[in-house]
Simulated scan of single mutants.
Amino acid sequence: MYTNILVPVSFEADRNAQGAMEIAKALRAEGGKITCLHVMESLPKYATEYLPPDHLDRAKADILETLASLVAHVPNAETMVVSGHSARTILEFAGQESNDLIIIASHQPGMQDYLLGSTAAKVVRHAKCAVHVLR
């Protein structure tokens, strides 16, 4: 059983956040903590010029609301939204928080994933703790 579980959540259609939370609850030791994390990727400067000034604040508030519904009935669970590159930020967060398990949803790989590598693949390759990949 694990005492400090990280569940990175992506809101892409092929991700299974609820399934990842169920696995986290099943693998968590008594009194263990679950952190549900979303990483907001930075937008290019040329794109942000055309968005309303409060776009990022509204997006973050919407994401926090969605994450809160995921952990609403999960004891000792918290939500966080951070900015950065997805894989790198997940790995840095897991290291800083001393997570002992990362549960990450993956999608069926396409050609671009074989060339560049998906977020889940990068996390699996570089994590310093156990990683459970949910398909």
Rank of each mutant, 00 (worst) to 15 (best):
M1L: 09
T3D: 12
T3R: 14
N4R: 15
I5L: 07
F11E: 07
F11L: 13
A13L: 05
D14A: 13
R15I: 03
A17E: 04
Q18K: 15
M21T: 07
I23N: 05
A26V: 00
A26F: 08
L27D: 00
R28E: 06
A29H: 10
G31F: 05
K33N: 12
I34P: 10
H38D: 07
V39L: 08
L43I: 09
P44D: 04
K45I: 12
Y46H: 09
Y46E: 13
Y46N: 10
L51G: 04
D54V: 01
L56Y: 01
R58N: 13
R58L: 07
R58D: 03
A59C: 01
D62W: 00
I63N: 05
T66V: 11
T66Q: 15
L70I: 06
V74Y: 06
V74F: 08
N76R: 10
A77S: 15
E78C: 05
M80Q: 12
G84S: 09
G84Q: 04
H85K: 14
T89I: 06
I90S: 10
L91S: 08
A94C: 09
G95M: 05
Q96H: 12
S98I: 00
S98P: 00
S98F: 10
S98D: 14
N99W: 02
I103S: 06
A105G: 15
A105I: 03
S106H: 07
G110V: 06
M111I: 15
M111Y: 09
D113Q: 11
L116I: 14
S118K: 05
T119F: 04
V123T: 04
V124C: 13
V124E: 06
R125N: 11
H126E: 12
C129N: 08
A130M: 05
A130F: 05
V131M: 05
H132L: 11
R135N: 11
R135K: 13
